[in-house]
Design a protein around this nucleic acid. Structure first.
Lengths: 188, 188
DNA sequence: GCGCAGCGATACGTCAACGTTTCGTTCTGA
DNA sequence: TCAGAACGAAACGTTGACGTATCGCTGCGC
């Protein structure tokens, strides 16, 4: 059998790494601070990961929250609202949310960070694009709506408020947001 | 008179600081790299600013682009489209744009950065909120539209694409975006 | 219970950036 | 022209983080 201490160490270190990322940002993370938070010797970390980025990437891969909730038998518009509300709740306050600025900045400078930042972002986006496309096929949403643009618009509202302003998006506004963007009969 | 060398040094250093910020990010900026880029001795920088953050803040204050273009006698919807197109152009590609991730990350960790990040963001937002409110008063936009929410939505679409995805918002889509969000007659 | 592998503690060398200081040079205003 | 201010160049001490290495100890599998 494989030594259970290995898995236990890995887990506590990965968790500590995500918390550190959320707390001090991508540029601020330190192997030593992660070790301290995890209650682990620095050497133990270097036994499992070659360097800092590998650890951070691994940690994020392990602990990022999949922002796509289970949608039951709801209508498309209701599903979109539920999904957006869920995204908003995560974005407004969660460990993951506090990692986002770190990821954005990291993605700007490091191709490896960029790769998984965009990958996880795309995962959320595609769920929504598919949903809206279905809504159009089923006649619930106007065919004038571009699913891709609408998705950027819906998610954008939530992330914009979190990243660029002092007041976060209120998850209770999710329905109102859906109405604004999707329940429309374009004038032109 | 005051020595002209002072102003000349300040200017070339501030410009170099913004360029460095755009190039390597908030966490990556180095006094020495700024000095090198500016063609100036490190001691000269410390003669004018007490520390790194003071310099960065000053530089950004000096060189950030005001993303609010002059709007002539256009209709409200046309004005919004022009404004969004301008924002998109700046966000897609500009020195300022490359500073945004750095600002977001900086704002997350440092209250002073947060203060001016939010301030400049609010400047853009308020111009748009006022415009939309005017559109509602003049009957060009449905009274069901919440100007604040619509603004976050419009700007959000642009920033979201820049910060979270691999493909930036196409400024040519500005009109389509306005149609989607504002040219609506809500179904409910 | 034995041997080994994983761990904690700790010390170490390296490096990069900080911010300071010094000193000779050059530019400026009076 | 001349005193003083600003600057460039360079050296310096300090700090903090990196990543490495050593060495007992302890818990694991067999």
């Amino acid at each position: 059998m494989t030594d259970p201490r290995i898995e236990r160490s890995r887990e506590v270190i990965l968790r500590a790494a995500v918390q550190e990322l959320a707390a001090v940002g991508y540029g601020g993370v330190t192997i030593e601070s992660i070790a301290a938070r995890a209650g682990v010797a620095k050497s133990t970390i270097y036994r499992h990961w070659p360097d800092k980025l590998a650890l951070i990437a691994d940690a994020f891969e392990t602990f990022h929250e999949r922002m796509v909730p289970d949608l039951g038998e709801l209508s498309v518009l209701e599903s979109v609202a539920v999904l957006l509300r869920h995204v908003a709740e995560v974005v407004v306050d969660s460990t993951f949310s506090r990692c986002i600025p770190a990821l954005i900045e990291g993605a700007e400078r490091d191709p490896r960070v960029r790769e998984f930042h965009h990958r996880y972002s795309a995962e959320r986006r595609e769920a929504l694009i598919d949903l809206i496309a279905r809504g159009i096929r089923e006649g619930e949403i106007s065919a004038d709506v571009d699913p891709e643009l609408a998705t950027s618009t819906l998610l954008g509202a939530i992330f914009y408020r979190r990243l660029m302003t002092a007041s976060a998006f209120d998850p209770g506004q999710a329905g109102q947001l859906v109405d604004l963007v999707l329940s429309s009969a374009p004038a032109r």
